[in-house]
């Protein structure tokens, strides 16, 4: 465990140093986050123009969902995209060989080898938006945060959301072992998950089913947001943790299977 922790510190230390070789990226990412957030808020305002509630969600509740989405998007930029996009290039160029020959779990290496600071503005914006929305909604908006247990539940559900999101990305990236060029699929996933910007109940019934049982968008933002607002149900919470565990186990199994199929790039 100590070796993994030291490796992670080295991984992230070196990748931050490498990223900071290109500081212009920071400015571009900052502007991009602000633009995205402004666009989402504008759409949300339009949706609320018809009345004070959207699918049973108040304005501040919907902002919490948007804040969680922005937070997850930042996590994607910080960790998922830089690491998992590399799986595809590792397979294409044959450098996956070096990863597989290290005496460390290859899934850990591929998932945590690098970190990009350019998602941090989105993480900060997401956290800020959640805090502001909870404050704006008054005491009942922050009803979920009255006791330690009630604070831990949203945190656990947020971790479950991160695990689900990670597993979806990893599974798609791991498919490159067989199909090599799968990067477009992860882009499609990213744009599909944009649906998580708004509460799932705001969508028509068919899409609600799709976003709950096929693409678990509901578990990414809506379920943790409900827990934050003190309206979470035990059934959804258990379901969320179960889906996260299944997704993680699925990604693990798929990777083990993928390694058996790996033929390595030709020299």
């Amino acid at each position: 465990m100590k070796r993994y922790w030291r490796s992670l510190r080295c991984f992230w230390g070196t990748s931050l140093a490498a990223e900071l070789e290109y500081p212009l990226n920071a400015a571009i990412e900052f502007v991009s986050v602000l633009g995205n957030l402004a666009g989402s808020l504008f759409v949300l305002q339009l949706l609320f123009a018809g009345g004070p509630s959207l699918g049973g969600w108040s304005w501040s509740g919907a902002l919490v969902v948007l804040g969680l989405y922005t937070l997850l998007d930042g996590f994607t930029t910080c960790v998922l995209q830089p690491n998992l996009s590399r799986i595809v290039s590792h397979v294409q160029t044959g450098t996956l060989d070096y990863v597989l020959l290290k005496p460390i779990d290859s899934q850990f290496w591929l998932s945590a080898r690098t970190v990009s600071p350019w998602g941090l503005p989105a993480v900060a914006a997401g956290l800020g938006l959640i805090g502001w929305a909870l404050a704006q909604g008054g005491p009942e908006a922050a009803a979920g945060l009255r006791s330690l247990g009630a604070v831990l539940l949203p945190l656990a559900l947020l971790l479950a959301a991160l695990a689900i999101l990670y597993s979806l990305w990893f599974v798609l990236a791991a498919l490159s072992i067989w199909f090599v060029k799968v990067w477009n699929a992860t882009e499609v996933l990213r744009y599909t998950l944009v649906a998580g910007r708004y509460p799932v109940s705001a969508y028509p019934p068919a899409l609600r089913l799709l976003f709950t049982f096929v693409l678990p968008v509901a578990f990414l933002t809506t379920v943790p947001a409900e827990a934050l607002l003190g309206r979470g149900s035990a059934l959804w919470a258990i379901g969320s943790l179960l889906v996260a565990a299944l997704c993680l186990a699925g990604s693990r199994l798929l990777w083990r299977f993928a390694q058996r199929s790996y033929t390595s790039a030709s020299s």
Partner: peptide
């Protein structure tokens, strides 16, 4: 690692091993 001095990559290898 292409953008960093080799010493940084060597530190990564030392940690992994």
């Amino acid at each position: 690692i292409w953008d960093l001095p080799a010493l940084d990559s060597l530190r990564v290898n030392a940690a992994v091993y």
